[in-house]
Design a protein around this nucleic acid. Structure first.
Lengths: 344, 344
DNA sequence: TAAATTTCGGCAATCGATTGCATTTTTTAA
DNA sequence: TTAAAAAATGCAATCGATTGCCGAAATTTA
């Protein structure tokens, strides 16, 4: 281990006075090598601290056993969990992960895609940035015969494998729950409508209202209430209306819901009796606020595992896969104090 | 883009009837190509949707422009933030990240290391698992001439680049703060002492007590209170002592501190007047519990950036780097309600 | 116009593992 | 004992980009 260069199969071959091809076969446990020589080779490899050079192997084999993942932010709970799930399932199959974050920037997303294509990844898993409305870079992935799996924030019009939450349904159930708890004027904090998930969450809200013949009031639907601060701001606006809402569905995130809760608390408005609050994502903290916040669990780690396994299945079914599969995971409404009216 | 194979420099060379070497030089913007042909080549590459094959390039160049990262869990706030920081800084230098999680398992950590060596990464960044007490796999990284950077949970005895928090100091300050707030019997929830960070947090606690001539009481120091549940359990034990503590420093994590708070609340013990609580890590939720929890911020994203930049510096200083550098980041005590006694 | 530079561009080896095909060795059958 | 079959091993090309070295073309100088 003193030498400057790492051990290669040639070193092993030379030492044992055999052909490199035999070494390669032995290391790959091919049946075309005598047991005795195989043992010898493995032993020598161990001695020389041989580590195979995946670059060479992958170059030759034309695959990289690597999955590229692009998310807006790595350190956002939902994405971190999905990545953890993907890693877990991939690792078991001997696959590695290359992770990129787009920082919600279209330009960077494109660059990430290019990098991953360069890296010869076998599959790219992506949740698009909020800025992304052009999908040429995604099509480019397909042109390069790389498997593409979209998750959560997907481009509907692109026919690729997809793993999503049944967002509309979850949203519908959440609003339905609010209605059942007796709330009559339910406001909606929307996310950027460029993203399909936020469109769906709005749609679920609308459908639930419609179902119960509750009028849809424009001034109760506020766009761009994505963060805690914006959620708080929107709440102030809503609560100062002549006819304020009695519940707020922060469909964008739990952070937004937290903003709502803080403003309500500051204004001395009782939650849930005077104001119901529902968030989205089941962040850790929703359980420990007072009152705890009703929210929706997305089973993010499972989602990650599902994504990876979808790829592995699809890979084995190398037959002309008919229609691009979409797997929908049903999220779960977690009802907590912020929407549990005592009098019911 | 219909063909089954991707465009290579040979395709471009053939189309323009020149040598592949010229194509390569043009793409790498070498000065040994006429401007006019360079332009032509670049244009043709664009037309053919050429993407370079990093595998081939890296194999030839003997480097991979890739950094491997091994953490216990990707979806743990602190690590997710560090990774985000590393990604950010690395991306700017044209480097990619391969991420692995050890799941706190020694065996898996070893496997991750081997995978990363196989992948020819240029650098491995690691925060060791709680099980890791043997460092042969880390030495193996060095034997393969791969730069090794340890962070946060480091093996002290290994001479490598390190990026750490000044844990001892932070812990000392936290306890000092508690003492200044008038707490007299301060309990300590410890993490596994196999990890140096937990040893240091304990040491900081001990030093602070010593400084103020406060006796060190064994029954106030509980090991293995790592999670919320264990923190809660430890708290019950502590509070049922004949002479219970009036403050608890959950040096393991904010989750543990949360467990403390929940038990205290359940037992109707007033925080901070009857019991002071201090956590560690500055998790999001510490700000929104009631009362909010005093804790220690580790500047995790910055830590990630520091790690990446340390590598790039070190790489440029290819001179025989004298002593393996250790960068220590000073964490910050965030004092909040859980330790702010009104009567002071 | 010839000689000396400088600039371009091509040839071919290289990185390390894999694999189709050929060859040698061993085993089995005749 | 020999031929045929099977098993083991070797040879050499390949994956795609890079680069040292050399020759050709273009430019400058004498």
């Amino acid at each position: 281990m003193k030498s400057k260069k790492r051990t290669t199969i040639y070193d092993i071959a030379e030492k044992l006075n055999i052909a490199p091809s035999s070494v390669s076969r032995a290391l790959n446990n091919s049946s075309y090598v005598k047991e005795s020589t195989k043992k010898l080779i493995l032993q020598t490899a161990e001695e020389l601290n041989y580590k195979m050079n995946s670059l060479a192997s992958n170059l030759r084999k034309g695959q990289s056993k690597t999955i590229g993942v692009i998310v807006p932010r790595i350190n956002q709970n939902f994405f971190a969990n999905v990545i953890a799930g993907i890693e877990d399932a991939s690792y078991k199959q001997g696959y590695n992960l290359i992770i990129c974050q787009s920082n919600e920037l279209y330009e960077k997303e494109v660059q990430c895609v290019n990098t991953l294509i360069n890296q010869n990844v076998d599959c790219i898993v992506i949740s698009i940035s909020v800025e992304t409305i052009n999908y040429q870079h995604l099509k480019n992935i397909l042109d390069h015969h790389i498997e593409l799996i979209q998750f959560d924030r997907v481009a509907d019009e692109l026919e690729t494998l997809k793993v999503i939450n049944d967002t509309l349904q979850a949203s519908y159930e959440a609003v339905n729950h609010l209605i059942n708890q007796g709330y009559k004027r339910i406001a909606l904090l929307e996310g950027p409508q460029s993203l399909n998930i936020f469109r769906q969450r709005k749609e679920g809200y609308l459908q639930a209202l419609k179902k119960h013949n509750i009028p849809i009031i424009d001034e109760l639907m506020l766009e761009n209430a994505w963060t805690k601060e914006l959620g708080a701001q929107a709440t102030r606006q809503l609560l100062s209306l002549p006819n304020p809402p009695d519940a707020i569905f922060a469909s964008t995130s739990d952070f937004s819901a937290l903003g709502v809760l803080e403003v309500a608390t500051a204004m001395n408005i009782k939650v849930p009796s005077q104001l119901g609050i529902c968030g989205y994502s089941n962040e850790d903290f929703t359980e420990i606020t007072s009152p705890s916040i009703t929210t929706i669990d997305q089973f993010s780690v499972d989602m990650g595992k599902t994504i990876a396994n979808l790829y592995f299945e699809e890979m084995n079914n190398s037959n002309v896969s008919a229609t691009p599969k979409t797997i929908s995971i049903k999220p779960k409404l977690i009802t907590r104090s912020s929407t549990q009216r005592s009098a019911e």
